[in-house]
């Protein structure tokens, strides 16, 4: 019989990709592996109250037992994860999610994330531009109002001469259709539910390392985890960690394909910047690396070492 109820809280509608393809799968697996002793109640779209930036505190305080959130919603709190959010850093979501989990275990488990029990850490597929006018070189972005998804993306947009606009993901469709913004940065997968491909005609993607990425966590309240009987703890352990993180990042990135196809079918203009042409972009983004490393130094963290380690781990991945 059911002994434990876990409340899983997150910010997207239940039918969005990640809730359906990742979180529901996780929850179903946990319920099944526990022989029905664990029930996962799923609360989508902030149904338990609060705003997305509060999700992490909700897990820490036990308002929800499990939360899925974007780490960038709480800038300044988990600086180490930003190594995977640097522009032109991540090429493959599976490799990055694997590296992210390994570095979580060595650098963040007892540090930045000491207040939660971590279940999974992953990144989304390549982030790219979706714009009203074609963006083929950095100069095209001059003066465009672009919605950026994280602290580092906003820095990048500024360096590129665009005007970064901050707004939550659900507001993007409205803002695009009204011309309040000229474009947005999101991965393909998110364009489906926002109908971005119907709203803009141009998409600019990069061969090789992506323009940017966001980091996610699936985190559990510490006391809830500690309070489980050993066999149920085992159920949770079996369904979390490295393998789950790679599955989650990979699944999310795989959802990019069908979303991109919608844009193709729609006859949209998809601009692909080759690796050589991306050099110009990378040169502009370079100061972000420098300022990020300086920022990390100020916090007593060796930023360069984190970058090197992340690169080495991603290169070593051969899933």
């Amino acid at each position: 019989a059911q002994e434990v109820t876990l409340r899983l809280h997150q910010f997207l509608p239940a039918q969005a990709n990640v809730p359906q393809l990742v979180l529901d799968v996780w929850a179903d697996n946990v319920e099944e592996a526990s022989g029905g002793r664990i029930e996962v109640e799923r609360y989508a779209a902030m149904a338990l109250g609060g705003t997305p930036p509060e999700l992490m505190d909700q897990a820490i305080d036990g308002i929800a037992d499990v939360v899925w959130t974007v780490v960038g919603y709480t800038p300044g709190r988990f600086p180490t994860t930003e190594v995977f959010e640097l522009p032109f850093m991540v090429e493959d979501a599976r490799a990055a999610s694997s590296a992210y989990w390994q570095m979580f275990e060595t650098h963040m488990k007892d540090g930045e994330f000491a207040d939660v029990h971590m279940l999974g850490t992953w990144v989304h597929g390549p982030g790219l531009f979706h714009t009203d006018t074609p963006v083929e070189s950095p100069a095209d972005l001059e003066g465009m109002k672009i919605r950026g998804g994280s602290r580092l993306v906003n820095q990048l947009l500024e360096l590129l001469g665009a005007e970064p606009v901050g707004m939550p993901v659900p507001a993007v469709s409205e803002a695009l259709s009204k011309g309040v913004i000229n474009g947005t940065t999101i991965p393909w997968e998110v364009t489906t539910s926002l109908r971005v491909s119907e709203l803009v005609d141009n998409h600019t993607e990069f061969e090789g390392p992506a323009l940017y990425n966001l980091t996610f966590v699936l985190a559990m309240n510490k006391d809830t985890y500690e309070g489980l009987p050993d066999d149920l703890k085992q159920v949770i352990d079996d369904n979390s960690g490295l393998e789950f993180s790679i599955f989650a990042g990979g699944t999310q990135a795989d959802a990019d394909g069908p979303a991109r196809q919608i844009a193709v079918d729609n006859g949209n203009n998809i601009i692909t910047i080759s690796e050589e042409d991306a050099d110009e972009w990378r040169a502009i983004a370079e100061p972000i690396y420098e300022s990020w490393i300086a920022d990390m130094d100020a916090r007593g963290i060796d930023g360069q070492a984190l970058i090197d380690e992340a690169r080495a781990l991603m290169d070593a991945y051969d899933g």
């Binding site: 505190d57 305080d61 036990g62």
Partner: peptide, 14 residues
């Protein structure tokens, strides 16, 4: 009551 109290840490502000 702890969880309801914890909500109050941020819910009035948000």
């Amino acid at each position: 009551a702890d969880i309801a109290l914890a909500r109050l840490k941020s819910e009035t502000y948000t």
